[in-house]
Structure formats: C-alpha cells, structure tokens
Design a protein around this nucleic acid. Structure first.
Lengths: 324, 324
DNA sequence: CTGTTAGCGCTTTCAT
DNA sequence: ATGAAAGCGCTAACAG
C-alpha cells in the first residue's frame, strides 16, 4: 500500500503538499506539482478513500434506492444515475427496496449510515409522511418520479396524465374512434394518472372508449387483457400504459391473425427498452426517466439549480394506421 | 454525529469495550454488554464505516463489474449478488464495463482502489491475459460464467454446450425431425457453445438441421431470423439460444398465422425473466445465473470452499408439441 | 474481561 | 507556496 507519506518522501515535500496536488488545490508551485505528480505515477499511488472520508467527513459516495431491480426501466435508470455520479467523481451505492415500506426505509437508513453524500430515491411503498420526517432530519435526498406534498423542491416529476393524453390524441388525430386502453395496477398512482389521461382525451373528444381494462404491468396481463378485449369488441386502436402490456397485447393480436397496424393500431408508454425493438416498432410516448435521473443527480450536487420540467414527446414508429 | 467515544462515556466503559460489543466479540461480560447496547440504542449510534475501514483495513465492501446494465439477466444477477453480499454484512458496489476491454479494466481498477474486499466479475471484453495479470497482483476476485485458462479455481462456470444439447434433445424425444436453431453473435463464446450443443445432438441423432441461423441476441434478430426461416423452410421446432430471440421469433410465427405449439414448437435458453411470462409459456433450459452468483459470493468470502458444478435443467412449459 | 495506547492515511488549520 | 501538527473515529495489540 503506497501512502501519501511515501509520495511525500519520494518527492521531497511534505504530506500537506501532496494532499494539495491530489485535491487540485491551486496554491502549489507548478514546479513542485510536477515533481509530486511524477512521484505519484512512479509509485502508483491512489488515495485511500476511507482515510480521506474520515478526515474530510465527505464520503464521495451517492446512493440510489430503487423499488426493484427487475424488469422495466431499471437498467436505464441505473445506467444514467451511475454515469452522472461518476462524472462528478462520486461512487454510486445501489440498494433495492423490494416493494415494502419497511425495506425501503431500511435501505435508505443503511445508505445514510454509510455516510452517503446524498441519495436518489425511486420508491413507492414508503409513505409521504416518512419521507417528510426524513427531510426534517437534515437528510439530503431527492425523489424521482413521485410528487410528495411538502417536499416539492426535492421531487423530479413527470406529468403522466398529460403524456397519456398526448398518446391518446395521436389515435384521435389519425381518425380512430374505436379505441381501448390497457392499464396497470390501480394501486399505483402513475397507473391511475395514465388511465386518467386517456379518459381526459376521450371525454374531450366526445368518444366513448371501447373498453378500459386494468391488470398488472406485465406481458401476461397484456396478453390476457388484449385477448379478452378482442373476444368481445372490435377496437381499431389500443393504447397500452407500458411496454410490457404492449408486447403481451401484440402476441394476442397477431395470434388471432390480426395485423398491426392494418387491423389494430398500437401506442404505448415507453421506458426506452422494448417498444423500438419489436416488429413492427411501436409508436410511443417517451417517459424520459434517464433525463430525469440525470437532472436528479445534478440537483443533488447543486442544491439550488432551478427546477427543470419534462414534456411528453411522441416517438412515431410503425404501429399506427392513419384512417382518414 | 454520535461516536464510539460518546457511547463509551454514556455507558461508563472504555472505547475498546464498546468496539467489542459492536463487533460481536465474545469476551464481554453480558452485564456490560447490555449496558453498552442500551447506550447505543439511546444515542442512536452507528459506526462510521470510514473510520472502521481505515483502522481495520477492511472495507466491508464487495464489488460487481458487469458488461452492461441493460436487458437480459442483469437484474437477476444484481439482485442475487447484492442479497448475498448483504447477508454477509457487505455493501455492494456496482460498476459496468460497457463492453470494451479498457472500460472493464477501468471499472475493476476503480473498485480495487476503493479497497473492495473482493470483486465478482461478469465481463467478456477484457482479455484472459489481463485477468491473469490481475490475479498475480494478489487481487481477490472471482469470474462468473467464463472459463479463463490459468484461473480455473476462480471461475464459476456453466456448461452451455451441454445445456444446449439437453434442450435440443427434448425436441428429438418429442419426435421432431425438422428442427432449426436461432443463435446469437458468433463473436461470443457462449453463443458458439450453445450452437455447438445443438449440432452435437443433431449429429448424434443423425438428423440434418433444417437451418442454423445467427444474429444478435435480441428481439429484432429473433423476428427477422424466424421470418427468414419460415419463408424458406418448414420446421416443426425451433430452438432459440436466448429469450429475446425466442420472443422475437414468437412474434414472427404468430404473425404468419402459425400456432405455438400446434404448428411450431419452441424451446429457448432462459435467464429467468421472460420465457415464463409470455403466452404460451416457453419450455426452456434454465441458465442458473442466480445460483452461480450466489456461489460466487460464497467463494469470494470463503476462498477454499469447494467448487460447485451447475447442471442444466429443463423447465417444461407449454411450447413443445409431442409428435409421437 | 476490560482499559490503555498506538496508530490507520488523510485533511486542515495555523504558522512561516 | 509550503510545512508542522492535530485530529477524524475506529481497531488491535498489549497489559493487567
């Protein structure tokens, strides 16, 4: 183990000086700086993070708590958060909440005990109240994709209702009138908001939905719901509130010998992983979770950067037929 | 910040004693232990990991380097590795290599600089040689799903060729003779092994494959390859070397009005995420990455635990038709 | 079984 | 611009 001391000795300076060049302190003569840097390279020195953390009481570490690691957009989320953290010289610690309030809280506590400099939270089981309590304890964290009353400045949110409305509007504009909606669990607020966005537009357009069916946010649900839908009705367009639902629905649709988009048009909410990678590629409304995550980190590190807002964006692909 | 010292003062003992109870040292009178524990709870003390790491030169931290965070079985991998690490009182640091040898090496270096107690590597770009060099530098790591010459004791591997053969055999046993294979990139050894396992069985059974088609390990490839296959030939069974390929293939199959398994039987290699969640559920040969990851951690922590071997296992679901 | 005493490797005043 | 010195909070001999 090469230490600061070794470098100092080798370069013929004091430890303080080495510390200064390592930390990019400006008050070092460039001559000595060069000497020190040479010694660092020569000895292959790398600072001991524990010692550094202890002395400075800064861990250079950020934490991410997610509900689950499986499926959906977790990969994208993690990818973005980590890249951004590293760009800022921070190591990322990740922990999952596994969908219960208690475990989510545990994960958060653990990360704070580890002395993370800040946390990004993508959780849903834990209550608004607990989150508010945490905030009172001078804890530094920001909340992703959730609007917690009393904690607005810490929340990075997306208007799911509006996004859903945009998506639905695409069908209307394409001349569809026989439209159905497949949505996720009613226990999740994002799910409710997406459904509501659909209803908003249908109401506004004075069109009666062919059906509004709910299930889980997964492929089997998509398959079953679509099968059930096509058994009883003849929609020309189906709006799916996430990608898994959409792919499940595709399977059911093509299995019945119907074609996309000739017989049935499809639009889904997208988290960037799948919609573009099936055939036909599904037209979608983009949920900018990566952009939001990036902003979250920025906000964590620079507490008074101004709030950004994220607008829904339609990505036109090959699953919508224009009727008129 | 509550420190050891505070607890010691409050409990009327020395810091050493507090340290002993915190670390579960047995040589403490249960009376004093209770006193100390009470003080800990009362003050809400939690040890400073940096100080602990510095003093003990053990970080209580494990590292995981993966090729990528996206898709596939990464969620399952991460989930398992983390759970197992936490079971052993270790925090997990995760970093992705992003598919280039240089970045993978960087990630590894970074984690070692962070003084991880050990690393689990799931990488493929970095060379056997570099890995061997790392091993010489008294670095502690184990390698997941890759057989590195010279590093066998550190490798946790799975026999893809044998597993693939098992899967193919299922078709044969079910009476199929018109069998095709869809595989992944030839640049990846696991891909080659899986293809070879298929060929092994076909040769052994004296059956000429209808086709052996290669592409990427993703849905569009599955779709295209299957479409191409069905254009020119009439297999009754298709073996897909991963789940993405299988789902892509399903889309192409059902789109042509063919049914699974009535017209086409399907088997895929499975990483536990998707095969069970489409309709019909796909019969698969299970790739026990979670089990392997769990073992990897155990091995990391207990260096001379004996090598475990993982056998392929067929999970029968609903996508294979028995002909005779 | 418990306390004393050195550090672990680094940052950070405070002088110079 | 650089150095000296005092910790940061904890562990680990070593005594007793």
């Amino acid at each position: 183990m090469v230490t600061l001391e070794d470098v100092a000795a080798s370069a013929g300076v004091s430890r303080a000086t080495v510390s200064r060049v390592v930390n990019g302190d400006t008050k070092v003569k460039s001559q000595t700086r060069i000497k020190v840097e040479a010694a660092i390279v020569e000895l292959g020195y790398s600072p001991n993070p524990a010692a550094r953390a202890l002395a400075s009481s800064q861990s250079h570490t950020l934490g991410l708590v997610t509900t689950s690691y499986r499926g959906g957009f977790f990969g994208a989320l993690m990818d973005t958060v980590q890249s951004e953290a590293e760009l800022n010289g921070k190591q990322l610690l990740v922990t999952q909440g596994r969908d219960t309030a208690e475990k989510e809280l545990n994960a958060i506590q653990r990360l704070f005990n580890l002395r993370c400099d800040g946390l990004v939270l993508h959780v849903r089981a834990i209550s608004d109240e607990t989150l508010n309590q945490l905030a009172e304890q001078e804890k530094k964290f920001i909340i992703l994709d959730r609007d917690v009353p009393g904690l607005e400045p810490r929340c990075v949110v997306f208007d799911h209702r509006a996004a859903s409305a945009c998506a639905t509007q695409v069908f209307i504009d394409a001349g569809h009138t026989k439209i159905a909606c497949l949505h996720g669990p009613v226990s999740r607020s994002s799910s409710l908001l997406r459904r509501q966005g659909f209803i908003d537009v249908m109401d506004r357009s004075n069109i009666e939905p062919v059906a509004i069916l709910g299930g889980e946010y997964d492929m089997p649900s998509g398959y079953q719901l679509a099968a059930q839908l096509l058994e009883n009705t003849q929609p020309t367009a189906i709006y799916c509130c996430n990608e898994e639902l959409a792919i499940g629905a595709m399977l059911a649709i093509t299995e019945r010998g119907l074609r996309i988009p000739q017989d049935i048009s499809l639009i889904c909410y997208d988290s960037g992983e799948r919609a573009a990678f099936v055939r036909p590629a599904i037209t979608s409304v983009h949920f900018p979770i990566s952009e939001m995550a990036r902003f979250a980190i920025r906000k964590l590190l620079d507490s008074h950067c101004e709030n950004e807002s994220f607008s829904p964006e339609i990505i036109h692909r090959d699953s919508v037929r224009v009727i008129r």
